[in-house]
Nucleic acid binder design. Sequence first.
RNA 1: GCGCCCGUAGUGAAAAGGAUAUCACGACAGCCUCCGAAGCUGUAAGUCCAGGUUCGAUUCCUGGCGGGCGCACCA
Length: 550
Amino acid sequence: MILDSLRKALLERAAAWAKEAGVEAPEGLALAAPPPHVKAEVSLPWPMVLGKRLRKNPMGVAKDLAARFKDIPEIESAVAAPPGFINIALKTSALCANVKAVTLAPEGYGRDAEAKPRKILAEFVSANPTGPLHMASGRGATLGDAMVRILRRIGHEVWAEYYVNDAGARVTLLGESLKARYDELHGRPAQVPEGGYQGDYLKDLAARLPEAAKSWGADEFGRWAMDTLLASHKKDMDDFRVSFDRWFKESELHASGAVEKTLQFLKDRGMVYEKESALWLGTSSDEKAGDDKDRVLVRSDGRPTYFLPDIAYHKTKYDRGYAELIDIFGADHHGYVPRLKAAIAALGRDPDSCHAIVHQLIHLYRGQEAVKMSKRAGTFVSLREVMEEAGTDACRFFFALRTPDSHLNFDLELAKKQSSDNPVYYCQYVHARICSIFREAAKQGILPTGAALPAPDARLLAAPEERALMAKIAWFPAALKSCEKELSPHPLANYVLELAGVYHSFYEKCRVNDAANPDLSRARLLLCAGTRDVVAQGLGLLGVSAPQEM
RNA sequence: GCGCCCGUAGUGAAAAGGAUAUCACGACAGCCUCCGAAGCUGUAAGUCCAGGUUCGAUUCCUGGCGGGCGCACCA
């Protein structure tokens, strides 16, 4: 890609300059997009960094460096600008060539050439199968699934897993709750137990129970409910276009003895002690691991806490050969992260190899009014409901657009009534519009020919809007790299939105189909094709469709 | 009380310590005999407060103020 090769060439020359000047070579410096008033495609703040190291005037450094950059073949001009920037304008031919290079790029092109593929296991959603999937799960699902797609596109090896908490006292409680609804339905007075699951969805489930339920005990009710709910989670994820390589059940860990073995492993490492007849994980003394207190692994009554099987699960991740983990949590579980990292350290693994992404909660509104949600009271809004009302595309784009750190306000009224205001349509419209332009071009008989579309002819494309569009396309791999760095798809979503804006401006200014000027038409069609491919790729990585018509 | 996250135009957000802070919605004024007006062009409007580090701070540090979340032998 042009920016990669450019950066390499720039760094080489900057390093040579630095060596002569007797200063440390400029490592890790990145290219930047210049502000709108600057007529250039790439901007470097390097001279200000180097000037500081060298205690020289940054403007002087900028002029020296700019002079050395001029022989790089892709560069049209490199000029120093106060207080010490170098603004680089690229040759139109280089930009044109890049349009095809970006869209035809193989897997792995966003990764730095010298970087090795990372081997990552991403775990996300992992909701308890005790109720329908919550709207908030949609955010974690979107972040996780988009990151899996993006990291794979960059050339990393990534697997996606959903951890199913299908063991423990919950099964019985769920079963008792469902049994109460079942009895209620058949005219027998019954009460959902204290602390049980109150939601109406259990009434719906009760109506679907098989004949055999008559003779079931609470555990059988619980087992059936979990299987049924898990199936609904799978269906929801499917319809939300989220795929997992594996649904990992907690019960498997108990069945295989992995929980016991993990406890023994931790004991052998001297991490476990007994206090008040419970077993504790002694991690609070480990400064690096960062948890502030010791945690219980096995209760005084002999039952394991949630924590122990979860440690066992994380142990299997490493044992199965994944070098890095990504775990996505909602903000209501952020307090769990230090504990988990401490446990990973206790297993003898580097806690930094586990990347915890904590996304803030979604605040649901109906117009101005905040909707209070409680899972136990059953007043939550399900992912299914939101998905059907606002559409998968709108939900996913909206969830992907914000950094995980920000609180997200989701207005159901807006999503329902004015869904065409959603920015996702702005992006999809570009794709549909270009497809339409190609249909029109076919009618007029001015389509570009050739099995593989060539790069547009640089001699014909000189308008500022054309250059701006080509430059924007050139930044696509950089957007993916930002996603990798931040472990969030939001730089890509914002990029697609900006690309859409640049394209719409181009469209207004530059007539594409013109039978009187077929050569120019073909050059512009090729530029349109490049835009279409980048938009389709970008939306695809976010799990959003790119329709040919809207 | 302690910990984590967040305070950016009317609203919701973006911004490897860089230039005149970007985008969408909303408001106002224009643009379809012409490839899709779900679009474009223009205008008004913004970094919570006080210090500090820096040539340069929305970004980093300290202290306020405001909002969210969490502090279990729950999961």
